[in-house]
Nucleic acid binder design. Sequence first.
DNA 1: TTTCAAAGAC
Length: 870
Amino acid sequence: MSSVLKTRPNSTTSPLSHNLKNNSNYVKSRNRFIFFKQPRRTCLLYSKLDFYSRTTVTHNVTQNQNAKICNFCQMGNLTNAMELLTTSQRHELGGSTYCSVLQLCAEKKSLEDGKRVHSVIISNGVVIDEALGAKLVFMYVNCGDLVNGRRIFYGILNDKVFLWNLMMSEYAKIGDYRESLSLFKKMQKMGVLGDSYTFTCVLKCFAALGKVKECKRVHGYILKLGFGSNTAVVNSTIAAYFKFGEVESARNLFDELVDRDVVSWNSMINGCVVNGSSRNGIEIFIQMLVMGVNWDLTTLVSVLVACANIGNLSLGRALHGFGVKACLGEEVVFSNTLLDMYSKCGNLNGATEVFVKMGETTIVSWTSIIAAYVREGLYDDAIGLFDEMQSKGVRPDIYTVASIVHACACSNALDKGREVHGYVIKNGMGSNLPVANALVNMYAKCGNVEEARLVFSQILAKDIVSWNTIIGGYSQNSLPSEALELFSDMQKQLKPDDITMACVLPACAGLAALDKGREIHGYILRRGYFSDLHVACALVDMYAKCGLLGLARLLFDMIPQKDLISWTAMIAGYGMHGFGNEAISTFKKMRIAGIEPDESSFAAILNACSHSGLLHEGWRFFNFMRNESGIEPKLEHYACMVDLLSRAGNLSKAYKFIESMPIEPDATIWGTLLSGCRIHHDVKLAEKVAEHLFELEPDNTRYYVDLANVYAEAEKWEEVKKLQEKIGKRRFKQNSGCSWIEVGGKFNIFVAGNTKHPQAKRIDALLRKLSLQMENGDYSTKLRYALINEDDMEKGVIQCGHSEKLAMAFGILNLPPGRTVRVTKNRRVCGDCHEMGKFLSRTTNREILLRDSNRFHCFKDGLCSCRGFW
DNA sequence: TTTCAAAGAC
């Protein structure tokens, strides 16, 4: 083995590459158990075989013919050897001649010739004794025909351990570890004693099958048999322990190993790297250098992977130099690893340079360069490379497919994603988990939840990634109930991890499912997941959206390394609760902490300003964003500004502002101005604005309702009637407005005019009583609001039964005195209910927290925290 | 010995 590595790494005239190229046995055999491949051992074995041939096959043949054939064999001339063999008479051929030709067939991997030799042997009636049988087995196995190899092997019942090893290692090589191990059992039954090669193979098989106990038992057996200091055996024991994550045991074995070879060192380095301690792997490599141990291609590859894992570009570059000096530059595996290292260290140029300079490329090279582009967010380029690769006849494998599907997911390329899905099905890759999971993610990210669910349901052995992906998919597509349902299904089969938490918490936030959120928080604390930034941030967001702003702040303060997203979550939390000034001071603190806002954090701060009516501050942020941060405002930013202007009564300014926008205003922008018109009773402008809206979204009921209310509030009843008729003719499709309240972990959902609830009568009685009190007291019912509401559209009747009112009344009736009533509504709160909320809070001495689709309303002592900004 | 899949803010 070490003969390949005579060179010192720094030698400029390194024959390493030369050796690697000319000694084809080396590279290909590195990971195989088969000992024939090792030059020295090969000779040993061959001489053994020849010995058997010479001693056991009878020589009653013409020496001349046999000598000729053997001569051809020695020269490697299979064609001539075959011709002579097939044209010779039976009596002219000796046993050793068949063996020589079979040997050559095996070397040349010519199964066809090998089979012909076999049939000649049969037709000549030659007795297949142990030696000839062994050669036949060797030929078949070496040519990849394990079935025939095994048939003959069993026929001759050979007790020579090397043949058993051959069979076992070949089965292990093709991944049939069970067959390999069953051979080992048969071998033991027959009383054939295993040698170091046998145990190396047995360990490899048990390790591959994940059989920890069996590996340890074999380890004990090995020690008993005295193989405890055999380097090859210890090397595979080290590898086995690493496979099970028992880093300490592996380390101890290595430390106690006297004759360490390069494989021992490589096993150590690679074991550390795959067990998540890349730094230790690098340290061991350095130790190797210090001690002057020769390294090889495998060493460099493992250390490069370590560099990629921890982003150590400078060491990666140094290793690049090492490799080139050692003439490994032409090794495709080296280049592939190098390419991936540059990419994972964030150096796309380096990766591209390696790729371009590569003489020979493989599917791994293509996949790595595609993944490099995906990593940098250059999805279209990645897809372009994918197409280019295919046009060059390189067929994508599961790795390529998983990468490209991911690119499709990130760039919303549903059509391309579907095309790749077709390729996956056609090529039977659908059962590969990373591929299937990537597909689920792609469909979900492209907003196609049904197809995501379909692919998910077809995965037979779903893993944690599959579950997290589908739960996250539902969360992101605003289907929180489905996400929570899947979360509970998942718990029946798997233990959720930190990523599950980050996937499911937004669903709790979406539903304002405080009890569920608290339960998950408990789980997070028990498992120590709070240290994960994603989890912590999702938790802050969840509490803010469930109305516990103080707790959100407390948790936010506990995050040691706050990033842009956590700051933004907190700013948005303050904003939706109407704490504009706190949002601003948080924004300032963020910048002091050295974190610069992006367009999302500007959206959060502008929203906060608009929910608190902070007009001047809003403008300041807007200008700062445009002029100093150099971020081009998007629709959501413009919407905040229109909101601020129009609420403050600057309606014509707002109109001009919209007209001056460099991007096309959407319905949300115009809708915001229409709301402003309603607040300030500007009928004329409202009509003008509504025209835009009816054109942009003719099926959206909300804008008809808003305009109708503008008319109603101006007491233009004729116009109201006309609009109602217009509405009546249209058939609107929409989700119904509903409100819900969580009591005792159970959701109570109310829709407008709901009379089917078990407590409907009690609720109705309470609301009637309160309405009467309102009319008699300070609260003159704002009838104008009640004239028409979006919720009334479905029922067609105006009634005192809006969902949020029902939910608030239910909360008061069912929650203990003093407990805050938390209600969530999927649309904006109606004015009538808003008044009722204030009144309820005073008469029942309760705090009522109502979250509508826009923000929080905290009703307390007859007042609302929104101060009219909603 | 190399290539792949899941999470947080607006």
